[in-house]
Design a binder for these strands. Structure first.
Lengths: 281, 281
DNA sequence: CTCATAATTTTCGTTTTTGAAAATATATTG
DNA sequence: CAATATATTTTCAAAAACGAAAATTATGAG
């Protein structure tokens, strides 16, 4: 047969008889392990599927799916719910997701306040951070924004609005939080000059020093500050007085601070001198 | 009070009495609309939450949450499931997600075949496409890969493996499928020379011409071909003979074709002459 | 062909979730 | 303060999902 140009891989013939494929490691007969793998993948892709859906998809009984799901969830591959299955949030992501849920209300309010200050048709930088992600959520109903971000989550959130122009900076993906960092990111940012830079921060010292843990992220934030007409800092009150290693700059360099509780008086003093506007929920 | 440096925004005082915030448009009293908005956002963030979880989160009865969810799902904001609520897949994403589910099995098998040919510690380009996304899924258990991609979904998928180095090309996000396109992307790719370029395609003409619909995506694919030591094309059989507008190149330029059905004889002939290896599931 | 084995479907009683309505709490207004 | 309106909790019967075991089907071996 002249069909194949390949001589080592398995079934190249269109009518190859059912050769048992060594696909899944699972020793189960037939296409059971196959279906398990597929369920796993569908769950990964869709986030959540009902047993009903899966049963229809595979043309089997809900009971069979139920059994599959039990096996898979026991092995930790997916998570079982009443009526369906969802992603088993990996340990790593749990940390980040939990962090997102913590102070959720505060962050949402801070974010709403920031969003209120952003006019339609504006251009923005948005950097890494749970609070800036909340800002992205809050901006979703604006019109025709142009956003440049180094945060994969922000990009995903905002790209769901058809009218936004979302630009992602290139760079290495940080596993922890989907942030993009590195020289490429900074070079990329340097190409733009936008209306608003929206940044988060890991800590603000009482003398007004802005601090972060990752120097690479600091360099990104630095580039954002330098290339934005206005810089908005969004942070919850837990960051006041909190220490981190890397110095990013001084609070007097930003235009407005959005937070959920009034900062300590010493900070307010510095902000007054630096003409930093304060927004408190 | 010396606390505030801001004079226009709402409650700046830490003890401001409950001023009714014009937050949500919903005319409901109190913090009900507030909770609705929060539920919406939690669902967006986590993908799926049980009623139990939400009830604990807000300190209310499951019944209350149930009512909330009913309202929200009726308005289309979220989707109701037994025991919880999940994201209401937006129309746009439905199209894309459905497309992902269609031919799921075929794509998964093609992807598994590709993954088998990729050694650990390899460096890769992966471009846009449902099939290449499946490849990303299939690669998740490899060790220490270095991946450069212009596909946000691929980046998200692969970054969940702690041992991978995932690099995203910068560029404009295409709403339809989370692809990154544009000059910046191409410049970015030019900086690298990798072991394997894994690409998808919209159509392959019977004379061996590779075709796509978006010329910007074609330029990205072109850059990938030019900067990869080996080029693997992953595509399902529906693409054979399918026409698209933009010419990407010729099938003889790739090293291996991975698909689920033997291509038409004319194509096979061309592939043989071009020494293209053929892998069929 | 018959038997053995594994996968799946059926069946059915049990548990969980649900929705409607009544009761309670909370806030607003006159 | 009483009256009213709204939000929430309680209560309870119906519906849905569940798990275990028996019955059925499919596959491979002797």
């Amino acid at each position: 047969m002249a069909l194949s140009t390949n001589d080592r891989q398995a079934g190249v013939m269109p009518f190859s008889p059912e050769t048992p494929q060594p696909e899944e490691a699972s020793g189960d007969r037939m296409n059971l392990g196959d279906r398990h793998a597929q369920i796993k993948q569908i769950v990964q892709t869709k986030g959540f599927v009902t047993i009903e859906q899966l049963a229809r998809e595979f043309g089997v009984t809900p009971q069979t799916i139920r059994r599959d799901i039990n096996v898979l969830s026991k092995s930790g591959a997916i998570q079982r719910f009443h009526g369906g299955a969802g992603i088993a949030s990996s340990t790593e992501n749990v940390a980040y997701n939990e962090r997102k849920i913590i102070c959720f209300q505060e962050k949402r309010k801070i974010a709403a306040m920031v969003a209120e200050q952003i006019p339609d048709h504006a251009s923005l930088f948005i950097n890494i951070g749970t609070t800036t992600e909340a800002v992205a959520q809050a901006l979703i109903h604006h019109k025709r924004l142009r956003i440049i971000t180094n945060n994969l989550n922000v990009a995903t959130i905002l790209s769901s609005n058809e009218n936004f122009e979302v630009i992602v900076t290139g760079g290495l993906v940080r596993h922890r939080d989907g942030g993009l960092i590195g020289e490429a990111t900074i070079d990329f940012i340097q190409q733009f000059k936008v209306d608003f830079g929206i940044i988060g921060i890991s800590g603000i010292d009482l003398d007004g020093t802005l601090l972060d843990f990752d120097y690479r992220e600091v360099r990104v934030a630095r580039a954002i500050i330098d290339n934005s007409r206005k810089v908005y800092l969004a942070t919850d009150h837990t960051k006041f007085g909190r220490n981190a290693m890397v110095r990013l700059g001084n609070i007097s360099e930003i235009d407005s601070l959005f937070t959920d509780q009034a900062p300590p008086p010493s900070l307010v003093e510095i902000m007054n001198q630096g003409e930093v506007r304060l927004f408190v929920t």
